[in-house]
């Protein structure tokens, strides 16, 4: 499939950043398939509107990934019942069914918590726990590097509260 090549600079950006964009969306959705759908939309949207060599390209992609994924969890509550199927390693299912069930429940709670958290809190969690540095998180969120730690600290506390409150 090479007949519809996109601009070289864009394709290089895609190859370099697609895994990370998927990872960010996956951190919110806990579902690889949904995360890849979001990543496709993010890159398509970027391709239509922006210069791939723009300095803001990567921060834009990261931010769009987290926000688009949050839009998915917030906009389609029905999906939560099938949220983790795509995120689990195949061998884990056969090894420890009970563990898988517990993992599913935890991820369900976390995903629900991400849905309820303020957008900035959910975003900083998704970005940071996807492996972005503080500087990268700052760029994506449009804040100073010094603020990231504070946002992350608050978000982690809110996450704990949300999950604790949701635990039966």
């Amino acid at each position: 499939m090479t007949g519809n090549r996109l601009p070289e600079a864009f394709e290089q950006l895609f190859i370099a950043e697609y895994p990370r964009v998927v990872a960010i969306a996956n951190r919110v959705l806990a579902n690889r398939h949904e995360a890849e759908e979001v990543a496709q939309e993010v890159f398509l949207s970027f391709h239509k509107s922006h210069d791939p060599q723009a300095s803001y390209a990567r921060p834009w992609l990261y931010r769009a990934a987290s926000h688009s994924a949050l839009n998915v969890v917030r906009g389609n509550k029905r999906r939560v019942v099938r949220e983790v199927a795509g995120a689990l390693p195949a061998d884990a299912v056969s090894e420890d069914p009970q563990g898988i069930v517990e993992q599913q429940e935890q991820r369900h709670m976390v995903r629900q918590a991400m849905r309820r958290l303020p957008a900035r809190s959910a975003s900083v969690l998704a970005l940071r726990y996807s492996g972005l540095s503080y500087a990268e998180v700052a760029g994506a969120m449009g804040v100073s590097v010094g603020q990231v730690g504070t946002l992350l600290r608050r978000a982690e506390a809110r996450l704990r509260t949300e999950v604790t409150n949701a635990t039966p």
């Binding site: 499939m1 519809n4 090549r5 996109l6 394709e11 895609f14 190859i15 697609y18 895994p19 998927v22 990872a23 996956n26 951190r27 806990a30 690889r32 995360a35 890849e36 990543a39 496709q40 890159f43 398509l44 391709h47 795509g86 995120a87 689990l88 390693p89 935890q106 991820r107 976390v110 969690l125 726990y129 978000a155 982690e156 996450l159 704990r160 999950v163």
Partner: peptide
Amino acid sequence: RAAMLMALPEPEVETQAALNRLRR
């Protein structure tokens, strides 16, 4: 505690296949 909650296996993606899909 947050890291435990947020822990997920890294998704395995096929970037070239994804790029082909985006091209289409």
